[in-house]
C-alpha cells in the first residue's frame, strides 16, 4: 500500500526506518508546510517495505512517501 503526500511540503523529520513494523496511526514522517507541521501516519498496520523520502526533501502532492506491506 502506497502512502502519498497530500500536499506540497518539506520533509523535516523521518520517524521510521525501512523494514520497521508499524501499527495503524503510527507516524512515518513529519512534513512542514505553510507554518504547520503535518504528521503522515500509517494507514494500516504492517511493515514499511520502502521509504522513498529523506529529511529536507521537497515533495509534491501525490508523491509516494512510503510503501507498507499490510500485516
Amino acid at each position: 500500500m502506497e502512502v502519498q503526500a497530500e500536499l506540497t511540503a518539506t520533509v523535516w523529520k523521518v520517524v521510521v526506518e525501512q523494514g520497521a513494523s508499524v501499527a495503524e496511526g503510527d507516524e512515518l514522517v513529519i512534513l512542514e508546510s505553510m507554518k504547520m507541521e503535518i504528521p503522515v501516519v500509517a494507514p494500516t498496520a504492517g511493515t514499511v517495505t520502502e521509504l522513498k523520502v529523506g529529511e529536507e526533501d521537497r515533495i509534491n502532492e501525490g508523491d509516494v512517501i512510503a510503501v507498507i506491506e499490510p500485516s
Binding site: E6, L7, M36, E37, I38, P39
Partner: peptide
C-alpha cells in the same frame, strides 16, 4: 507559535 495538523484525505481533521 507552533501549529500541528492532522489530515484526512487532504482536508484538516484537527489542528
Amino acid at each position: 507559535i507552533l501549529s500541528e495538523t492532522l489530515l484526512t484525505n487532504a482536508t484538516i481533521d484537527a489542528l
